[in-house]
Design a protein around this nucleic acid. Structure first.
Length: 258
DNA sequence: ATGCCTATTATTAATAGA
């Protein structure tokens, strides 16, 4: 089973390349973030034409997440994280595909830090970790995939010193991520490639991609039921090199699901 | 420390991203 995550940075601008990527990479499940569009502008028909059914949680202008499944309708189990009824951001959706629970998330950026946006990030992170603990307690196969907006370690940034005051790398952010891993989740890409330089995001400025000045912030965490079945993991860098591309690249794993 | 570039929305500029 191939499971991917891709921050598309605008569904409206990205649909042609998204369709090309799906045809090329053929994931069984694709978690999308930053749709930047309301629910009624989700291109469900165009996706269905290339074999994907979806559940989505959109929002005008910002945020927005979706789960795509090939030749199958994802069975939605949750939209929005529990714990804050006043949270209006569309940042979490969860569905079961082929018996695997898929949590698709777009964790807040949190800049500038300190400040209210960083407080929101940490609060959202606490709610995620509480929900994740519940998913683990159920014991089944689970994948938490998405744009975590977390640089986990110094090995996950081209120039880590540039990020020391940034919300993606501050000690509180990394501590929350490592607390999540400590519950028993496996960071798939790092587990399969312990020493590799792996990036999933390169900003649009200063030819960051051609200089490989990137960071690793898109992650796929698997529960203990899935970890022994991890077979492969990678980043579709060729998609990031294309015209009209997102600033993120699709990131994926292959795992035995049963 | 900041701008660089891009997408979106609403009207040619503001906002957010990371």
């Amino acid at each position: 089973m191939k499971i991917a995550t891709y921050n598309v940075n605008g569904m409206g601008a990205r649909l042609p390349l998204l369709l090309e990527w799906l045809a090329q990479s053929t994931p069984d499940v694709a978690c999308l973030q930053e749709l930047k569009a309301p629910d009624d502008r989700f291109p469900a028909d165009a996706l269905r034409e290339v074999g994907y059914q979806a559940v989505w949680h959109g929002q005008k202008s910002w945020n927005g997440v979706a789960i795509l499944a090939r030749d199958e309708e994802p069975r939605e189990t949750r939209r929005g994280l529990p714990g804050d009824p006043d949270d209006s951001h569309s940042r979490y959706i969860e569905a079961v595909v082929r018996g695997v629970t898929i949590g698709c998330l777009y964790l807040p950026n949190g800049n500038p830090a300190p400040g209210p946006k960083f407080d929101y990030k940490l609060g959202w992170f606490r709610r995620l970790n509480e929900h994740a603990a519940g998913l683990l307690a159920a014991g089944g196969p689970v994948v938490l995939a998405g744009d975590f907006n977390v640089i986990p370690t110094e090995h996950d940034a081209y120039k880590p010193e540039r990020w020391v005051h940034d919300a993606l790398y501050l000690p509180e952010t990394r501590a929350a991520y490592h607390a999540l891993l400590a519950q028993g989740w496996t960071d798939s890409l790092r587990a399969l490639h312990p020493e590799a330089k792996i990036y999933t995001y390169w900003d649009y400025f200063r030819s960051a991609f051609t200089r490989n000045a990137g960071i690793r912030i898109d992650h796929l965490l698997v529960s203990p039921a899935l970890a022994p079945g991890l077979k492969a993991a990678g980043v579709d860098r060729d998609i990031r090199a294309r015209e009209k591309t997102s600033d993120h690249a699709p990131t994926w794993i292959e795992v035995e699901s049963a």
